[in-house]
Nucleic acid binder design. Structure first.
Lengths: 163, 163
DNA sequence: CCATTCAGGACCGCGCCAGTCCTGTTTTCG
DNA sequence: CGAAAACAGGACTGGCGCGGTCCTGAATGG
């Protein structure tokens, strides 16, 4: 699958939405404007808060706001905040789970290179790169450069893999 | 989680093991030499066969052998063979599932860049790069070059993310 | 003092992967 | 020619984890 959790997808939606308003926003308001169910938005925002990506204000007239500019938040950070450290398999270093056949595992330690490569790719792309230009056409500052930072060299092989 | 299925992990083990013997090998033999349960090995090999990564010989004295050299098999191909096309979210192009809120989804189409970056990374690393050098020290042909192809530039940021 | 809003859990159902098994087909060997 | 060896291709099930909801408590503002 190599699929990330749905909550991560929601998190990106919510964070992007947060960036589109200067003031503070309630979880209910974000739910309304994004279409994501309110309890889910609340859950996402709580996680984002404890991860330090957004700042929260309790009490009446409270709400959430971004702790940092969108462009300084790599996708990797969002994924890690929700799903925990990126570890493709149990054999990867820093993994929480244990490899039961670690002593004779033939690929022991070899997934690390793969893991690092993926992490590197995810650290290159910021949330600002994922903002849809069509909906909110703003003076494109970072989008063009960052987009070029995404490797597009494997196009031929890549598209073949994508079926 | 961004975790790939256990079967994929097994597949790498099995394929590497296949490469370490010139002749044909039975699924039972591979199970014995790798420690992976035999039914699971059989399942993996059947998938690998239909994906064209290994060739099979039926009947008595039958078995499996690699269809191509290990160095020409990118990790991405193994992952795709087992888990299907790589699609991080439902919103990614070529994804099989449908995005229910596609029309007003704020990040519509934006995961594509992320997906492509990951796919590119996975296409760069071949199974030969994952062979443990400690166990079978052979004249290193492709290992050094390929290993350098794996981006190691994000080390500082990367290790920070890894918990 | 009350309404509002976040904090931090507990909780449950559903889907999906992992692992097994069974039946059929192909091939080799005695 | 028959029996054993080995792959082919499913069906089947159990467990685990995520998605989604809800509840109680704490903080804040009017």
């Amino acid at each position: 699958m190599l699929r990330l959790s749905k909550l991560t997808d929601y998190a990106v939606v919510v964070l992007v939405r947060l960036s589109e308003e200067s003031g503070i926003q309630t979880s209910g308001g974000i739910a309304a404007s994004t279409g994501v169910p309110e309890p889910t938005v609340a859950k996402v925002l709580k996680i984002m808060t404890s991860a330090g990506l957004v700042a929260s204000q309790r009490g009446a007239r409270g709400g959430y706001r971004l702790a940092r500019p969108l462009a300084t938040i790599p996708v990797a950070e969002v994924i890690i905040a929700i799903d925990g450290p990126i570890a493709l398999t149990a054999c990867v270093e820093h993994s929480t789970s244990v490899c039961d056949t670690s002593s004779l595992c033939p690929v022991k330690g070899r997934w690390d290179a793969v893991n690092t490569a993926i992490l590197d790719a995810l650290s290159t792309i910021s949330l600002a790169d994922m903002r849809p230009t069509a909906f909110f056409p703003l003076p494109a500052h970072h989008l063009p450069e960052k987009r070029d930072a995404v490797p597009t060299t494997a196009s031929a092989l890549t598209t073949a893999f994508l079926e």
